[in-house]
Simulated assay, not measured.
Amino acid sequence: MPTDIGIGLLIAMLVRGERTDNHARHVEQLRLHGFTVLAFCVGGVLVVIAYKALGALLLLVL
């Protein structure tokens, strides 16, 4: 995903001056990839916190 964000930013910068229909699509893809990476990071932190609180019981709960 971070690679896709980097490529998307490069493409968005290249077409930014033209304002084509592709620009809106690239911005939407960047938003989606950014949200996916953010959700992955937040989920990782929440699982660590839950594991500290519940221990191995977390595996049974999930």
Rank of each mutant, 00 (worst) to 15 (best):
I11L: 12
H23Q: 14
L54D: 14
F40A: 10
V45K: 08
G17Q: 07
G44Y: 03
L9V: 03
I49W: 13
G34D: 01
Y51G: 05
V37G: 02
L60S: 09
A50L: 13
G34Y: 00
M1A: 15
C41P: 00
I5G: 01
Y51I: 02
L60W: 06
N22K: 05
H26S: 02
T3V: 13
A50H: 01
H26P: 00
L46N: 07
P2L: 11
I49L: 15
E18D: 01
V45L: 14
V61Y: 10
F40D: 13
G8H: 03
V27F: 02
D4N: 08
G44Q: 04
I5W: 02
L10E: 10
A56G: 07
V48T: 12
R25K: 14
L60D: 13
V48S: 12
L54R: 13
L9D: 07
L10W: 13
I11N: 04
L60R: 11
H33A: 09
L10S: 11
Y51L: 08
K52A: 15
A53M: 05
H33P: 01
L38H: 06
L10C: 09
V47F: 07
G43A: 03
G34L: 01
V27D: 03
A24P: 00
A24E: 13
T36S: 12
L38N: 04
V15C: 03
Q29S: 08
H26D: 02
L10M: 09
V27L: 12
V37H: 04
A56S: 15
Q29M: 08
F40K: 05
G44W: 00
L30S: 01
D21T: 10
L32C: 03
V48G: 12
L30T: 05
P2W: 07
I11D: 07
A24C: 00
D4I: 06
A50S: 11
A56D: 15
K52E: 15
V15S: 04
G34Q: 02
T3A: 15
R31I: 05
A24N: 08
V48I: 14
T20V: 06
V37S: 05
A24F: 06
A53R: 14
L32R: 05
H23L: 11
V27N: 04
R25L: 08
A50P: 04
E28T: 11
M1W: 03
A12P: 00
C41T: 07
L57K: 15
D4Y: 06
L59W: 12
F35L: 09
G8V: 01
G34F: 02
Y51E: 12
V15I: 15
I7S: 04
A12Q: 08
V48R: 13
A39I: 07
G55M: 04
I5N: 00
L46I: 13
L62R: 03
L54T: 10
L62P: 00
I5M: 03
Q29G: 02
V48D: 10
T3N: 13
M1K: 09
T3L: 12
E28G: 02
F40I: 10
A12H: 09
H23V: 02
E28A: 15
L58T: 11
V15T: 14
V61H: 05
L46G: 03
N22S: 09
H26M: 13
I11Y: 05
K52S: 15
